[in-house]
Design a protein around this nucleic acid. Structure first.
Length: 602
RNA sequence: GGCGGCGUAGCUCAGCUGGUCAGAGCGGGGAUCUCAUAAGUCCCAGGUCGGAGGUUCGAGUCCUCCCGCCGCCA
């Protein structure tokens, strides 16, 4: 039996997004309002709906979205950051649709490897886990991740759920004990097939020799679920996404399934197997259950049944492609055995490379998400990866491309459009809107075009086409720039009279367009969207209660006073840019040589 | 070795069931407005759509073979 903890943790080099044992994420606070980040979790929402029970109709099922529970053998890397950013964007979009969202992330903290590294640091495992787990939470805060639940596999409630689950599967007759002997990779924490090993029986992942090990373990009878799994995949082809990964999964199932080991006799740092405290439960029957135990509220009775009633099944498990097998094969079979609904879908995204190379510590070319945020700002990081990496495929990061894209889209198209318009409004209208946006846009085709594009973006968001959604929203920005150029309000104001009145209307039209972009883009760039909204004269509270339906044309009313025009997104400058500027006339880009600039505050 | 998939402008890629499909974004070159974050707008890429055959009135778009990548499995 191979596959085990190692998988979740493996994900060696390249930014295996989501790698690690499973990777899960942590909480965060909206950078926007640090204060809000409460102990419970980052997601702070504006006032809003109340799903009180009392009344008639039962509340609609929540939209439960998960990232993997990240393995705490190492601090978060770009891969886990990518998974979590994408999940956050999806969660934010669903909230805009007024869905009750439960965005789950967390950390997977058991296993031999954790105990060993803790010992190496002279600390007990729990302290070690606390530190690493917290580093995830810190990063999520930096990345504007607003999760609802952060589950740690060392949480008491989680252990209770794991025990209940184990008992159910045992009652189903799907757990048996057997001897297992084979070559074991300590780093992966799993047995390996000799066939997959390299020279000197080295593990292909860690390149370290595997050692012979024999122990009796408990096994899960995965093989019994072959037909049910085939059925699931056939009847619900959307269970695995993107679609090309479905073929892979179907192949795995059709080629036959082997039972897998769910316990370890030699590992102490873990949840004891019920009725056999000499063994601990191995990752699959531990960490995967975090998706369910996370649903429990703090302080409430911790049981599997209770947790399931809190909103299971999950609507979407977002993971890196490296752990697809465990989520699309093992996990549903386990749930079937326990008599629990399977999730609606599993989405396996691709890996990230840097300058075309796999990333890895050994190569010394890792991308540190925290560094990126410090240098370029959170909106840039979120936007770049969600826009430039077709969701589901592998993607590449290069600093030059990052700067080009972010500058062209967020600074030149979006930021500058707002800034130039507010500048004109200030100079000619005392920063005050003279018309309602609906009246101003009467008979203007731009309004219809914007509405159509917003609908298109919504559709793309719903289908997890995040990159396409970004592209569509940028089209709106392009239309705005084109419109203002064609109307040339700066000239009309100089003419005065009716021309000036028309110009005043045009500014309202552009600003309303900006308002709509801000809302629709908020799942991707929440901080930037807030800055835009604030400049349009709204409060943060107003921003927080926005729904997708607020993208409907007409939000800006006559009399609304705009803030002082100030760039909402600073271009990322490079050394070359500066030389160009100081010398003769500058060209558009110039070769960049990295170097960032301070962020713009709201 | 078996089974996906891929190979389209410098880069990243769209192109569903064959006939404006030769495109977009970024970069690059040129022009232009001047309100703006030296931003905006407009024009420009003559790319044999990996190669060779074939089907068809007509093929990036279907078939065969070859070359080169990548994934899963063995």
């Amino acid at each position: 039996m191979a596959a085990g903890r190692a998988f979740l943790r493996a994900a060696p080099s390249s930014l295996a997004a989501g790698a690690g044992r499973f990777a899960f994420a942590c909480p965060t606070a909206l950078p926007l309002t640090a204060a809000a980040a409460a102990a419970t979790g980052p997601h702070r929402r504006g006032r809003g709906r109340c799903y009180c029970s009392a009344s008639d109709a039962p509340p609609p099922p929540p939209y439960v979205l998960t990232t993997p529970l990240y393995y705490v053998n190492a601090p978060p890397h770009m891969g886990s950051a990518y998974t979590t950013i994408a999940a956050d964007a999806i969660a934010r979009f669903q909230r805009l649709l007024d869905k009750r969202v439960v965005f789950i992330t967390g950390t997977d903290e058991h296993g031999e490897k954790i105990a060993t590294s803790a010992e190496a640091c002279g600390r007990n495992p729990k302290d070690h886990c606390d530190t690493i787990s917290n580093s995830y939470k810190m990063l999520w805060a930096d990345l504007d991740i607003e999760y609802d639940k952060f589950i740690r596999t060392t949480d008491r409630k989680h252990e209770a759920v794991v025990n209940d689950f184990y008992s159910r599967v045992l009652d189903s007759g799907d757990i048996y004990r057997a001897d297992y002997e084979g070559l074991y990779c300590v780093s992966c924490e799993e047995y390996k097939d000799e066939k997959e090993l390299g020279e000197n029986k080295c593990c292909p992942v860690h390149l370290k020799p595997c050692v012979p090990r024999k122990e009796d373990n408990y096994f899960f009878a995965l093989s019994k679920y072959q037909h049910q799994l085939e059925d699931l995949l056939t009847k619900n082809p959307n269970f695995v996404r993107p679609s090309h990964r479905l073929n892979e999964v179907q192949g795995w199932v059709k080629s036959g399934l082997r039972d897998f080991s769910i316990s370890r006799a030699s590992v102490e740092w873990g949840i004891p197997v019920p009725n056999d405290t000499k063994q601990t439960i191995y990752v699959w029957f531990d960490a995967l259950l975090g998706y369910i135990s996370a649903l429990l509220d703090d302080g409430e009775k911790a049981s599997l049944q209770q947790a399931v009633e809190r909103g299971w099944p999950a609507s979407l498990h977002l993971i890196g492609k490296d752990i697809l097998r465990f989520h699309a094969v093992y996990w549903p079979a386990m749930l079937m055995s326990a008599g629990i609904s399977v999730p609606d879908a599993v989405f396996g995204h691709g890996f990230l490379t840097k300058d075309g190379m796999k990333m890895g510590k050994s190569l010394g070319n890792t991308l540190e998400p925290k560094d990126l945020v410090n240098r370029f700002g959170v909106d840039s990081v979120r936007y770049f990866f969600l826009r430039e990496v077709e969701f589901g495929n592998d993607g590449d990061y290069s600093e030059e491309r990052f700067i080009n894209i972010v500058n062209a889209h967020l600074a030149n198209t979006i930021g500058n459009l707002l800034n130039r318009t507010l500048g004109l409004l200030k100079k000619n209208c005392k920063s005050t809107l003279a018309f309602d946006s609906i009246a101003a846009a009467d008979g203007i085709s731009l309004k219809d075009n914007v509405e159509n594009l917003v609908d298109k973006a919504k559709d793309q968001f719903e289908n997890l086409l995040l990159s396409s959604a970004c592209e569509t929203l940028m089209e709106i920005g392009n239309l705005g720039n084109l419109y203002i150029d064609e109307q040339a309000p700066w000239s009309c104001f100089k003419q005065g009279g009716e021309s000036a009145e028309k110009a005043a209307k045009d500014l309202v039209i552009i600003l309303e367009t900006m308002r709509i972009i801000a809302i629709a883009l908020s799942p991707i760039t929440p901080s930037l969207s807030l800055r835009i909204y604030t400049q349009l004269g709204f409060t943060e509270d107003q921003f927080r209660t926005l729904r997708w339906e607020d993208t409907k044309w007409g939000g800006l009313k006559a009399g609304q006073v705009m803030m002082e025009p100030k760039p909402v997104f600073a271009r990322i400058e490079t050394e070359t840019d500066e030389k160009d500027q100081s010398s003769s006339k500058a060209t558009k880009g110039g070769k960049k040589k990295a170097r960032s600039q301070g962020l713009v505050e709201a």
